[in-house]
């Protein structure tokens, strides 16, 4: 099949991706037949708890897994028409940092502690944009001012430990966009930061996305931070998508009880003072075991006896657009009845 890279085709097309990881101690399947697309200039938020597979889903196809882990990837992950799963390490390296930029959760561990910040940014620009060292250094200065670091030129000469957490994350973002990527993958970019800095970083990402016309995939466990940034939201549970749709569909007309549980667990300024916090009971399932039926059943308040038989498929939510899909027949049947 010939695929043309036009503006109509999605920049990232993930089809039936399954990831199995093997370490000397155990094997797990953190991603199980997941499909989604990201269009040019779109912001997709992938939300789920620790261990839901959301990070592996994004990093495994790029070959970014910790050393000592063997991975089996099935399905296809097409970036601008090129299947990343069948690309060799050499081609992947050109994609990483070039076509796809990555922001990591912990900015300190993603930066080299003994090299100047300017060099670290310039390196990426040299590699992917084929700039001369001097031009790359100049570009690094521009990038630092683009990500809103005050006094960017003197920052170029600083080392990571001389910066605060928020400033380091800005440097991390500058590095990730230095190769002028068309897609930015941000893995929990705000989790390690204060609420105030978190707001700054979210607003920076929104601003960059608009100015550089990038697509962004933001991975987070905090469904609270996605409402102002994402255009599309995918909720992931136990290696599968529980719900996916436009940000308004998923956050305001949520279908899946897991999505609702995540939304309810975000503390708001509306709950009565002194009242109990609402969250999700229990913890996510062990992904090294077989899961029968809906993986969320043990923690679900809507669960009925049929739920532990057969994993529910992802289908259109009744009454909503064709883009809004969810995997909970119990709630969907109720909705369909109400509509009828």
């Amino acid at each position: 099949m010939i695929q043309t890279v036009g503006s109509a085709s999605p920049i990232l097309d993930v089809r039936n991706l399954t990831v199995t990881l093997h370490t000397p101690k155990t094997s797990v399947r953190p991603v199980d037949r997941v499909s989604y697309t990201v269009n040019r200039g779109e912001v997709l938020a992938i939300v789920g708890e620790s261990g839901s597979g959301k990070t592996i889903l994004n990093l495994a196809p790029l070959g970014l897994l910790p050393a000592g882990v063997d991975s089996d990837l099935e399905g296809s992950v097409k970036f601008e028409g090129q299947d990343l799963l069948t690309s060799g390490e050499y081609k992947l390296r050109a994609v990483r940092g070039g076509g796809i930029g990555v922001i990591f959760q912990d900015p300190l561990s993603a930066l080299n502690p003994v090299r100047k910040i300017g060099r670290q940014i310039a390196e990426v620009a040299e590699e992917h944009l084929k700039l001369t060292p001097r031009a790359a250094e100049q570009r690094a200065g521009e990038l630092l001012s683009l990500v809103g670091l005050p006094d960017p030129l003197s920052r170029l000469q600083q080392y990571p430990h001389e910066l605060s957490g928020g400033q380091r994350q800005r440097v991390g973002i500058a590095i990730s966009i230095a190769g002028e990527p068309r897609l930015l993958i941000a893995d929990e970019p705000t989790t390690a930061l204060d609420v105030t800095v978190q707001a700054q970083i979210i607003s920076l990402l929104k601003d960059l996305q608009r100015r550089l016309k990038m697509a962004i995939v933001i991975i987070t466990h905090d469904i609270g931070v996605v409402s102002g940034l994402a255009s599309k939201v995918a909720v992931m549970y136990a290696g599968r998508l529980a719900e996916i749709g436009s940000v308004d569909d998923v956050l305001t007309r949520s279908v899946h009880p897991y999505t609702l549980g995540l939304l309810n667990s975000v503390p708001t300024l509306k709950a009565p003072i002194g009242s109990r916090f609402s969250g999700l009971p229990g913890s996510p399932p062990d992904l090294s075991r077989r899961i029968d039926g809906c993986a969320f059943t043990p923690r679900c308040s809507h669960a009925i006896p049929g739920c532990e038989r057969g994993r529910p498929p992802l289908v259109h939510a009744p009454g909503d657009g064709p883009e809004h899909l969810a995997a909970c027949p119990v709630v969907m049947n109720k909705l369909a009845l109400e509509l009828a």
Binding site: T20, H22, S27, R29, D72, S288, R289, R290
Partner: peptide, 11 residues
């Protein structure tokens, strides 16, 4: 390992 795991997870 692959074979063991597939047996465990599929069935």
């Amino acid at each position: 390992r692959r074979r063991e795991f597939l047996k465990e997870i599929a069935a």
